[in-house]
């Protein structure tokens, strides 16, 4: 498939909306807030990506997934740049992304530093099991009512 030589930035953002986070596939890399800028110069596309955590192993997969997704729609002149400043914050998660996390069973980040409620049964009786979880961006919590453990997206 070839594309017209005028790609719009909106079009690229739309394509990126279709690239899921490799660890949490319910949200897109755009909703995760790691795409900081998109610029297009005729057929050349440049995307600035910021890591969530400095050592997050998903970042290299995210880059590969973006390259693959854009190659599929015909973008071959692609430059991916890593930008660490300003540092990523959970404030950049979109509202849609937060809702999708909750739907998936991961409590979204809260400014208070802990989950608002159990993502399974909505109970507010929750307790921390560990400050760290299955990925750098999550902590492990448990609901004292339904007794289910759940991931909480750390607020940073």
């Amino acid at each position: 498939m070839t594309i017209a030589n005028s790609i719009s930035e909106e079009q690229v953002w739309d394509w990126l909306e279709g690239v899921p986070d490799p660890e949490i596939p319910v949200i897109s890399v755009v909703d995760l807030g790691v795409i900081r800028a998109v610029s297009v110069d005729s057929d050349a596309v440049e995307i600035k990506i910021t890591p969530t955590y400095s050592g997050c192993p998903a970042m290299s997969i995210i880059s590969l997934d973006i390259q693959a997704a854009l190659a599929k729609v015909g973008v071959t002149n692609l430059t991916l740049k890593t930008q660490i400043s300003p540092p990523w914050t959970t404030d950049w998660l979109s509202e849609k992304g937060k809702a999708q996390l909750k739907e998936y069973g991961i409590a979204p980040p809260q400014p208070s530093g802990g989950p608002e409620s159990c993502p399974h049964c909505e109970s507010r009786h929750v307790e921390k099991v560990s400050q760290f979880g299955s990925t750098p961006c999550k902590a492990l919590w448990r609901c004292s009512d339904c007794l289910e453990p759940f991931d909480y997206f750390k607020c940073i």
């Binding site: 890591p51 400095s54 050592g55 192993p57 560990s130 760290f132 750098p136 492990l140």
Partner: peptide, 16 residues
């Protein structure tokens, strides 16, 4: 849980 926490801390440090 401690195992995961230690490994996560290590990961942050290697990233830095």
């Amino acid at each position: 849980e401690e195992d995961i926490a230690l490994a996560n801390t290590a990961l942050d440090l290697i990233g830095q």
